[in-house]
Structure formats: structure tokens, C-alpha cells
Design a protein around this nucleic acid. Sequence first.
DNA 1: TAAAATAGTTGTATTATACAATCAATAACT
DNA 2: AGTTATTGATTGTATAATACAACTATTTTA
Lengths: 143, 143
Amino acid sequence: MSDESVELIERQITDFVRRIVMTEQREGRMERSAYILLRQLSTYGPAGVKALAENLQLDISTVSRQASALVEKDYVEKLPNPDDKRSYFYKITELGSEELEGNRRERFERLEEMLEGWTEEEQETFGRLLKRYNETANERLNL
Amino acid sequence: MSDESVELIERQITDFVRRIVMTEQREGRMERSAYILLRQLSTYGPAGVKALAENLQLDISTVSRQASALVEKDYVEKLPNPDDKRSYFYKITELGSEELEGNRRERFERLEEMLEGWTEEEQETFGRLLKRYNETANERLNL
DNA sequence: TAAAATAGTTGTATTATACAATCAATAACT
DNA sequence: AGTTATTGATTGTATAATACAACTATTTTA
């Protein structure tokens, strides 16, 4: 493994992560956390905080608060679980879906601007390598 | 531009950023912010909070606090600027350099583990594409 | 020399997060 | 069946990184 590649990647990753985190905070856009939670609910359907916390790899309390915030905004509804009165299902609402979709489109547009001038192949490769990295990270987590 | 690529990349980027941010928070390692500030001082030499804030694209007050925290730990010294009594130079210390270097090595090791099994070419490409992305982001910021 | 600009610090607020305590409901044990 | 243990969720408290606003002490400018 070449030291140069590792050095370059390390450097680029810190910069990359940092910029994205900060840009997201600044622009008055939907927060990363809300976006990710909504996306989760939209993709995998209603779930309780415990399951969500596991999937998102967050503390239950964190998800509980995030979910409450989304309920406040009417982006999700909190439905009692008839089979277990301790628990609830959080379900994305129509409004939440619209917000999510709008946000997604915004993110896509910004990303497209960033990728202007990239060849189709470069884009494909970038996506593939990021995905591979993520998959490895997931595996390593579940050791 | 293919929608699929954009979608894939968007998804992978959110996951990527999220995981890195959270992993860094959890492991009791030097914080991202401290690492980046130290790296800046190490690479470009002593500077005052204003210049640092500009380079790092942070609010001056944020850098001021970060720098103070590093002074507390003796990772940097705060030297008065003889030519302007309002301002200071923050300079990385020997101890700070050692810490930075140790941290860097740790990060490299973890990254190497993540990149196990990648070909030399894949690594090189990943680094190159991240860099390209970052450079574009920098340009766009300075519009 | 008085007013304006500048470098830095500190107070206050927000967001995302974790851990601990707690509550209510369900499951397990004897 | 009745007591105890476990579980799903919420809420209190704490921390880290950040921004904005108010302020102080200098320096520059008009």
C-alpha cells in the first residue's frame, strides 16, 4: 500500500467531511440528521425509536428527540403500536415526503454542479469507491 | 449527467460523512477541530486567529476558543505580535507536533485497514477524485 | 486628535450527540 | 398468579463545535 495514496486520501477526507458538515450547518437547509431520519422512514417504512436507533447507529435518546422534532413539524406521525403499548411507530407523512423529496432534489442539484465536467466514468467510479468504503466500514462495525 | 450516478453519490456521501463524523466523536481521539487547527499551524506556520479563521473558514470566535484550548494543553503557544499589540501568533509546540504526528499515524493506520484489498490504482483514483471534488468546492466558495 | 476600523475575547444560543435515571408495559420465573 | 426482570420510550444533564453579538484594546484614517 502506497503511503502517498493514504496520505492524500486522509487529507482529502478530512477536508471533504469538514466542508460538507459546515456547509450543511450554515445554509438554512434541513439538517443532516432530519434528512437521514426521514430518508430512513421513507425507505424502510414506519418503525419505533429502538429499531431506528439501531439502523442509524445512534443512541435511542437521540432518535427520540429527532423524531419528536419531526412530529412537531408534521413531517412524521407517531402511531401507537396496538400490540405493545410501550412502543410507537413513527411514520412519514405526506408533508414529510414532500419535504424530503424537495430536499433530495436540492442536494442533487448542488451535487450536479459540483460534478460538472466530470466524465460519466469518473462519476461512476467515485460513487462505486465511496460505496465500497462505506460497505467496508459497515462490516468492520459489526465485528 | 446520469441521474443514477448522482443518486448513488449523494447517498454514499451522506453515509460517508455521517459515519466519519460519528466515529470520530465516539472514539476518544483528538477532535477533528483540534486536529485540523494543529495541522494548519504545522503546515503553514504561526498565525493569528483572524488568518486562521479565514483559512479554515470558521468564525473568529470559534478559532479563538479552539486555540485557547490548545494553549491549555500546551500544544500551541500564544506569542504576542511585537508589531501590533492587539494580535498574537499561535505557534505549534514540540508537544503539539508530536501529538499531531501520533494522531496522523493513527488515522493513517485506520485508513489503511479500510483500504485493504483496494488496488493501488483504486486508491490513487479515490484520492484524486476526492481532491477534485474538494478543489471544485473551494472554487465555488470563492465566487 | 477624534472617529473608524481591526484583532481578539467572552457571553449567549443552537444543534447533535451520549449516558443515566425514570416510567410504563410486557415477559419470565418460580 | 404474583413478583421480578426486561424492554421501549422519554427526559434530565452534559459536552463539543459552532455562530452571532457585545465588548476591549489597539491601530489607522480623515
